[in-house]
Design a protein around this nucleic acid. Structure first.
Lengths: 191, 191
DNA sequence: TAGCAGCGTTTAAAAATCTAGACAATACTC
DNA sequence: GAGTATTGTCTAGATTTTTAAACGCTGCTA
């Protein structure tokens, strides 16, 4: 029993439509993709129509023929947003003690967060290290900042940069007596 | 037939071990998670042992009981990277005509790409608009740049910012006679 | 127009997954 | 120790996915 299409409600987003979109974006036919992936064209047809929900193993095989990873495939889940341009005055300002963040946009569901950060002299994100999912990185524009990531610690100046997995405990401290300015990015957003 | 565990080679990463790790991190038993997810405990046991490869629909149901999205689950695929600190001189420089990119790190499998971009006067990413997966955004430090995204076009100056879905066609042009400097981020990387 | 090649879809049978329930092992209570 | 509850695993049968092959359609070539 149960032979109607599954639809978006079953999986949180439309696997079939997503696969079709990805496949067509590469200009592949169902048969061509099937050949590369080592499955039959019928399988791909059924998946694209949401007439069945592929096993992870099968979906992986199909995506290998694209090629694309499972992570990339499911990362397309979030719908696109709208505002593109942000005037300097429009950046959303968040203040947390001696640290001021100016954020580009503030939308739900976005994968990327960009911040223009100002660390006052002595500013510190706290002795209790930060930890969260995702990746973050940035470039120092002005001043000097001490960054601790796990066991490692360095002082970065203008032009220097950092990039790490946010699940590692980390801490920012302005140990100079000048404001430190940093532009940073983070995926996914966590503030 | 075929009753041995599937193992990591089948799916690119170990779905079973990943599910087990996530479940145990929340302190849930197989039965408790099964109850929340609306599946049987046997299902979860078999998945965790890689004795079967769940359908996307089933995996989604299980993850809903965590709760966790498919994207989050598969995003744990990439192992963490290593280098954290990048001295100004260490930024990898890429040059593409009148545009120069200085990239923070250059690793495979990272979700976030951060660039320090320099657009010479007249620099243009091309009349053929760029399109790729992901999101990108940035902040202008110096000079002025004209950004076109889909039907929209604006000129941004110091402190202004942008953020859009990279699947929309886009183009950057330095229409002034001064170098334009931008710090941008992109997820996933595309250069 | 016939013939051929490619496309996406459909269907019955083969192969996989999922459920319901039983099983053994551990831990805690009485 | 017996009794009970909870844990993860396993197995037969129900259900679903996957295959292999056919179908109808379109576009191209002779």
């Amino acid at each position: 029993m149960m032979s109607e299409p599954l639809q978006e409600t079953e999986t949180g987003f439309d696997v079939g439509a997503q696969l079709r979109a990805v496949r067509e974006a590469r200009g592949l036919s169902q048969r061509e993709l099937a050949r590369r992936a080592g499955v039959t064209n019928g399988t791909i047809s059924l998946i694209e129509q949401n007439k069945n929900s592929p096993s992870v193993a099968s979906l992986k095989k199909v995506l290998d023929g694209i090629p694309m990873t499972l992570a990339e495939f499911f990362a397309l889940e979030q719908p696109p947003c709208d505002q593109v341009f942000f005037r300097a005055a429009e950046l959303v300002t968040l203040t947390k003690g001696a640290v001021s963040f100016r954020q580009v946009g503030a939308r739900e569901g976005q994968a990327l967060q960009i911040l223009h950060e100002h660390y006052a002299p002595g500013a510190d994100t706290g002795k209790a290290m930060l930890r969260h999912d995702g990746e973050e990185g940035g470039i120092v524009l002005r001043g000097r900042i001490e960054l601790t990531v796990g066991e490692r610690r360095e002082v970065l100046g203008p032009g220097d940069a950092y990039h790490f997995d946010s699940s590692q405990p980390h801490r920012f401290r302005n140990i100079g007596d000048e404001v430190c300015e940093v532009i940073s990015a983070c995926t996914p957003p966590y503030l």
